[in-house]
Amino acid sequence: MNRDTRRRILSHVVITLCGMAILVALVPLVLVLFHVISQGISSLNFAFFTEMPRPVGEPGGGMANAIAGSLIVTLLGAVFAIPIGVMSGIYAAEYSGTRIAGAVRFAADTLNGVPSIVIGVFVYTIAVLPFRSFSALAGGLALGIMMIPLIMRTTEELLRLVPPTLREGALALGATRARAVFTVVVPAALPGILTGILLALARIAGETAPLLFTAFNNRFWSTDVTQPISTLTVQVFTYAIAPYEDWHRQAWAGALVLVMMVFICSLLARLATARMERMQRGG
């Protein structure tokens, strides 16, 4: 065998291995999707979105309260995390060389690695115990705490990609530093920041652990943020570990709705970014 043939064979082997790795990586994803869809679709009907859960033994009903609750809690988390995440991201990018920025970055990365159940316990002690009540607000707080490092890091990274010449252009026109940042640098990075926020939302919408003892659960329709609230994830969890066949079917439907919500969020992120970038480029 000459060298050329050997090289060709080696190259084929390596490429085949890479292809197989991709297959192995994709198989679980496809299986999960297939399983959730095939199990969930049969129990998913219009009533699932509009009706309340029924008592055990009574078939039918839906998760209207949990769907609304998930939206509310995720939204609360976003309201809480977006300003803090974006602002601290701006700070870290602007003063990137300083010790404070380094500390902030380290704190964000650590927070990102903290198991979500720990964040749940933490919020339980600061926002549930003092008020002697689980609440949607506490759930939103827990989700918000998880979102902050995600939003902060993407904001910072995207701001650093903005060419420094843009900032100089603004300064040379008599802009102050803050003005240059908020009127030129941040808008230039905005499409990417928006994507980051939507992706963070998608990730956080599927969290269960931090909600277990913050938002807790609620069998009734509730939009009162100071009261316990039902969420899809907690509802799926509750139904899945219950001993009733009927609830298991409902749990699968809930899981399917969750997957769809995450999917829509990611899709929106893509569309919004593409659109904003087109507007900036003027193509």
């Binding site: 100089e168 252009g169 008599g174 009127t183 900036q280």
Partner: peptide
């Protein structure tokens, strides 16, 4: 500047920028 650095805004907004902030 050596490399042109228009802001990712409209033509009008680019020229108006300095006028506005000042």
């Amino acid at each position: 500047f050596q490399k042109s650095n228009p802001f990712p805004k409209t033509i009008f907004e680019n020229v108006a920028y300095g006028v506005r902030i000042n």
